[in-house]
Design a protein around this nucleic acid. Structure first.
Lengths: 114, 114
DNA sequence: AAAAGATACCCAACTTGCTTATGTATATAA
DNA sequence: TTATATACATAAGCAAGTTGGGTATCTTTT
């Protein structure tokens, strides 16, 4: 992530959610997608991403598939069955955390507003 | 903190914001306020809180004032001038990060919705 | 009366999840 | 030919937590 050390632990959720929407992605693609979606505001570093991918794979959330594209190796990741389950768990965990944050930081806040 | 490792990095912001709203708070009071506001979902541990308070004080964001209440010592914290500045900085940093998170995790999301 | 829990502070060992820096390799643009 | 983009990876170090311990007073429960 670029210059913010905020909400550590959301990287896993980001990876899982993107893979749920895209079925199959490789590491570099994930960094670019996040950069796109946030207009360059969040940059996932490779030093954070690859270990996270390896960890999720070791935990049985992801499977990999190597592809050769233009003399370059790509490692595609996709969700396992457990991975699919994990997405919703992580998502509701994160959404509930963000909701609680809003309750603390913005006393005016009610669900339905940013 | 209860079961979420998501809070890392946002604890400082929470402390600063609560102090902006309440002018003067002591450590234990902060833990209770957060518990209240989140209906017990977020519990700030003392092992996290006190070092964070000491660090913010060392950085010149907070000043302290000891009070004796019912034979018990309370250490009240309040924002310094720099502390007041820091609140808005941290707040907009966090809000922008949360916005970016939504953009990544919920492609349907537009500012104005949760 | 004793034990448990709430109030109120603190510290230290440890773990986790990043950053920063480095390495390999190919292709393209300046 | 140097830098930038694509594409993978690892390792040292750091910051911010968790976990578990300690001290002390007051109140509630057994």
């Amino acid at each position: 992530m670029s210059n913010n050390n905020l909400i550590k632990g959301s990287l896993q959720t980001i990876i899982l959610k993107l893979l749920e929407e895209n079925d199959k992605m490789y590491g570099y693609e994930i960094t670019q997608r996040v950069k796109e979606l946030t207009e360059g505001e969040i940059k996932i570093t490779e030093g954070a991403l690859y270990p996270a991918l390896h960890k999720l794979e070791a935990e049985g959330m992801l499977t990999t598939e190597i592809q050769q594209v233009d003399n370059r190796v790509r490692k595609y990741y996709s969700l396992t069955k457990n991975g699919h389950k994990e997405v919703s768990a992580k998502m509701s965990e994160l959404q509930s955390f963000v909701g609680n944050l809003q309750r603390i930081l913005d006393p005016e806040w009610k669900p339905g507003l940013v």
